[in-house]
């Protein structure tokens, strides 16, 4: 199916995010517009201070734009209150962090169930789903282990499985391979490729060119503005 006919899962419409620092106003994002379609593999790149983190926070509904609109699955979430934003995070977004961010006192299975817990959906079904996803990321036998008993790569796999538990509109990965050695990095990137082939929408925020190169699109940010949007697809793929 061609890209334009796939629904838009996340849309920035002239998003501004300004911080007041004493007398000065910092324009972390200054009118960013972008559309991410279902099934896209999107990389957001930029040097530090470019607005990458701010964009990530807004994409993840952890922060709100000062001006402009942010739509998740066609719904404007820019003015939602804290509870409603939590709801959107819980239902529509799958977070993957640089430092894995598993909860140390919980087992792998319990970590996987956390996103569904807040929607009151923990039970036999969530357990089956966790087992299935753990299998899919290659950790089917580790459900009762604690995170610290696993290697970094394995922890990140758990985190990816956790991000998929709520069938999100898109995965949002923040330097997902930043804490991993290059072999493990390749494994994780291969897993992203797999997911991508299965139709999962992936947004990675990174400063690592190798990571960005795997994506179909690379959005370059500079000083809070879109510098350019690269289309990395081979011509055959890119044809409308």
């Amino acid at each position: 199916m061609d890209r334009a006919s796939r629904p838009v899962v996340a849309e920035f419409d002239a998003v501004h995010r300004h911080y007041r620092m004493g007398e000065n106003v910092v324009r972390a994002l200054d009118g960013v517009s972008v559309r991410i379609h279902q099934g896209d593999y999107f990389a957001i790149m930029g040097r530090s201070g470019s607005g990458k983190s701010t964009m990530l926070n807004i994409l993840g509904c952890l922060d709100r734009p000062t001006a402009g609109r942010y739509l998740v699955g066609g719904r404007d979430v820019s003015q939602l209150d804290d509870d409603a934003l939590s709801e959107v995070r819980g239902r529509e977004i799958g977070f993957i962090f640089q430092s894995f961010n598993l909860i140390p006192q919980l087992t792998v299975l319990e970590n996987l169930e956390v996103p569904l817990f807040y929607q009151g959906r923990v039970g036999a079904e969530s357990r089956r789903k966790a087992e299935h996803l753990a299998e899919r990321v290659g950790l089917g036998k580790r459900l009762e282990h604690k995170p610290l008993e696993l290697s970094g790569g394995q922890q990140q796999r758990v985190a990816i499985a956790r991000a998929l538990m709520n069938d999100p509109l898109f995965l949002l990965a923040d330097e997902a391979t930043g804490n991993l050695d290059s072999n493990t990095e390749q494994e994780i990137l291969a897993l992203f490729d797999d997911l991508r082939r299965d139709g999962v929408t992936i947004v990675v925020v990174t400063h690592n060119q190798k990571v960005a190169d795997r994506a179909e699109f690379t959005l370059w940010l500079r000083d809070g503005r879109v510098e350019r949007l690269d289309d990395n697809r081979r011509p055959a793929e890119a044809a409308p």
């Binding site: 939590s86 995070r89 819980g90 961010n101 598993l102 956390v114 996103p115 807040y118 956790r162």
Partner: peptide, 16 residues
């Protein structure tokens, strides 16, 4: 604090 951040990112509301 970090656990709280993780839980919030994964959909926990303040009341949770």
């Amino acid at each position: 604090t970090r656990e709280i951040g993780i839980r919030r990112a994964l959909g926990a509301k303040k009341k949770h």
